[in-house]
Amino acid sequence: MIYLDYQATTPLAPEAFEAMVPLLRDHYGNPHSTHRAGRQAAAQVELARDRILSAMALPEGRLIFTSGATEALNIAITGFARNAPADRRRIVTLATEHAAVRDTVLALEADGYEPVLLPVQRDGLVDLDIARAAINPETALVIAMLVNNEIGVIQPVDALCDLAHAAGAVFLCDAVQGFGRVPLPENADAIAISAHKVHGPKGVGALWLRDGLTLPPLIHGGGQEGGLRSGTLSPALCAGFGVAADLMRQNREADVAHVEKLWKAALDLFHGWTINGSTDNRYHGNLNIRRDGIDGARLLSDCRNIAFSLGSACASGSGRPSHVLHGLGLSDKEARGSVRIGFGRYTSAAELEDAARAITQAAAHQTTVAQGAHGS
């Protein structure tokens, strides 16, 4: 199988796997226990925390381990909303955000908050004039994704952060797709990241929180992670995350150069397809494209030896066209004729070429069959 679904998950780095094995097999102590086995496990958790913070390269802040970015985002969104003064009930985000943000914000409406979903332009980017008008003194929280998971566009998060702070609001960044690929917003108040998007294990993520900020816990229990996130941590998962983050920091320039090379090749290989989203402000490891006369779901079925997608893995089973592509103004037909191809560190040029050939041939066959049926 040729794997081209890097936005859904990335292959686990061998070094991350090797770091996890001893903690699963030999050093299995509870990191919250005070005996030697517990202290040994705790030391590995703290080493991982330091490695991730170093890779993030942000001003002073603390890192809270979670089960993934979805939990990190839920902790931050609900926590900042609860902390807000009574006269700040507005929560502003983008209509094209991941469901972990969008659905959490919409759910808070039942508690008296005012969700505001900002539209995006045809290129997938938010209009800062519209954002400026929406972010007012009644705003408690502004949330934006650094790199969109479906179309790869890079939002102007620094500008959104400045608008939030000018209005006295807090800014939260979903950096799941951007961490390790593009610079993180240094002025953000909170940032959510996930291990399995940077060649780490699934089941662990983190919330970076600026020093001086506190949140009420979403999960209650033993008071782990400074009382913000109760529950026994997995030292193995944390260690895998830490090693993956450290590798990402060390290999950043090489990874970027490799992805740029693949991007340029992909533009030639998929000549005649239309790119969804900005071609200038985007992460080049994400190629979301469409072609008239094809059905994306059928294309996936016709190319069973290639792993690519229609969009977010979290929403792929809904049967509905992508809300992100709708947000760009695409019709149902255009959205259903779109596919997402993601590549990265372990993708070879030969794999991309073979996959592109198979995908374009299957698409051409679909178009020919459709034209024949129409002509008859």
Rank of each mutant, 00 (worst) to 15 (best):
N276Q: 12
V92Y: 05
A373L: 03
F270M: 09
A175D: 03
E60Q: 15
N136T: 15
R290G: 15
E97F: 11
L53A: 07
S278K: 05
L218K: 13
A55R: 02
A206I: 03
G124L: 09
L106H: 07
G200V: 12
V21C: 06
A140V: 08
C173Y: 06
D174M: 10
R336I: 10
L184D: 00
A133N: 14
V105C: 08
M248H: 02
L141M: 07
L207T: 09
A188C: 09
E253H: 15
T360H: 01
L106M: 12
P216D: 10
I151S: 02
G152L: 02
F270G: 08
C173V: 13
M20D: 14
L328T: 08
A140F: 11
A16M: 09
I151C: 00
T70C: 08
T96S: 07
L300G: 07
C303F: 10
I143E: 06
A99G: 05
S316L: 04
D280S: 06
A19Y: 09
A370W: 04
L4Q: 08
S348N: 04
A57F: 03
R90H: 10
A355H: 02
L47E: 14
A131T: 10
A159L: 00
A13N: 14
L118N: 06
H220W: 11
D246I: 13
W263G: 02
E18T: 11
T367Y: 10
G124P: 00
I135H: 06
